[in-house]
Write a protein that binds this DNA or RNA. Structure first.
Ligand code: TTP
Ligand code: MG
Length: 374
DNA sequence: CCCTCATAGTT
DNA sequence: AACTAT
DNA sequence: AGGG
């Protein structure tokens, strides 16, 4: 079971994993599944989880080979998204009605319905190249391009990569970075940070977002959003003060600020095109030293933490933009674009005028984009 | 036929 | 500008 | 794979 948090809102979960609603539905139900995740309810048990798990391997394989933006990747990701949103698939005819599911995917689904597995998925899982690329991209700073290039040059293992000495930070924390955090771990880390933030400037409201908020039992990082309710402007300068304090306390190691929008090593004023909307977000991606407590943690663990500070007037956009899933965000931005807006975690903007629409709450975002709140 | 999320930091 | 990161 |  997933320990799903009860959330009202459109479909964000691409991690759902629960028993099915075994109601047999008319074929029209499959054609009626909205193409985009933003039009589906969430959280919702995924009746096709086993199938999705098989297909997800092939999606990962495409991501690793071509990158997440390639046509091969996008078509797979969107099709799987539709399958996640569908009722339980019992036969190919039902699957055929799903948007984004074409002939090639139908063959895979047919195979799964007949045999309970997909041979290509299993082969992929076991393939040396898949395992190598997967492992290599787990190093911070190594993406798809680098991994493929290294592989072509015969560098195919972490050990070989380590010897190159090109990713000192990536390898310094590599082992701990592979460890997923329980929900209790996430809460514990968040509380450490809350205590320090309260010393920096009391009165903040903080929320855990990302996979945690979608109900995942285990997260690869912590996404912590902070704001000062009804106190527009009070958030200014907070991030660097907070980072400074966490560094001073040793809760972030000296080399633990992986990057930060207000802490840049030595950058001048980012002379962005003047038409650009100023991001109302300050963010930092850090390595956090989660101290041992002698009970559940026998030693310190290094955790990846995203700290985001938002102005109160764009709190809703920040919540929507950082709750995910990634596919949900892509769908949402696509909808916004088609309706003449631009959405990002820092706010919702009118594309023509560049004017920012106030989004105090999540519902404000959906209302402005005319997306039903499910 | 082109696009498929938007943005920011680092190299 | 390419890459990686969210 | 599908929208425009
Ligand atoms: C990676 C990524 C994230 N996001 C948003 C949506 C994500 O839910 C949110 C946080 O990103 P992540 O922390 O990378 O993802 P996650 O929290 O959903 O899952 P986990 O941490 O367990 O791996 O940021 C995007 O909009 N685009 C992206 O490409
Ligand atoms: Mg996360």
């Amino acid at each position: 079971p997933q320990d799903r948090v009860h959330l009202h809102g459109p479909s964000r979960d691409h991690d759902s994993r629960s028993p099915s609603d075994s109601i047999s539905l008319p074929p029209s139900a499959f054609a009626a599944v909205p193409t985009l995740s933003v039009y589906r309810k969430s959280p919702r048990p995924c009746p096709n989880q086993a199938l999705v798990d098989e297909l997800a391997v092939l999606r990962s394989w495409r991501f690793l080979q071509h990158g997440t933006g390639a046509p091969e990747s996008i078509s797979y990701a969107t099709a799987i998204s539709a399958i996640i949103g569908a009722p339980k698939i019992d036969n190919v005819e039902q699957a055929r009605k799903l948007h984004k599911v074409g002939p090639k995917l139908l063959i895979k689904i047919d195979e799964f319905l007949t045999t309970g597995k997909i041979a290509e998925s299993e082969e992929t899982r076991n393939s040396a190249k898949f395992k190598a690329l997967d492992e290599m991209t787990s190093v911070y700073g190594v993406g798809q391009k680098t991994a493929v290039e290294l592989y072509e040059n015969g560098i195919r293992s972490l050990e070989q990569m380590r010897a190159l000495d090109r990713w000192p930070i990536g390898f310094k924390y590599q082992e701990d970075m592979q460890i997923k955090m329980s929900r209790a771990d996430c809460e514990s880390v968040a509380n450490f940070i809350r205590i320090q933030l309260d010393r920096v400037e009391p009165g903040a409201h903080t929320v855990l977002l990302g996979g945690y908020r979608r109900g995942k039992t285990h997260s690869s990082d912590i996404d912590l959003l902070c704001t000062y309710p009804h106190e527009e402007g009070k958030e200014k300068g907070i991030l660097s003060r907070l980072l400074y304090r966490l560094l001073a306390k040793g809760l972030i190691p000296e080399d633990g600020v992986l990057w930060s929008s207000s802490f840049a090593s030595h950058n001048v004023a980012p002379e962005r095109a003047s038409t650009r909307s100023f991001d109302s977000l300050d963010k930092a991606f850090v390595i956090f030293r989660h101290p041992a407590n002698g009970i559940t943690r026998k030693r310190d663990y290094f955790r990846r933490v995203d700290i985001i500070i938002t102005a109160w007037s764009t709190f809703g956009s920040a919540v929507v933009g950082w709750t995910g899933s990634t596919q949900f965000e892509r769908d949402l931005r696509q909808v916004a674009e088609k309706k003449g807006y631009k959405f990002e975690a820092g706010g919702l903007f009118d594309k023509q005028t560049g004017v920012r629409i106030p989004t105090l709450t999540e519902k404000d975002v959906f209302r402005a984009l005319d997306i039903p709140w499910l």
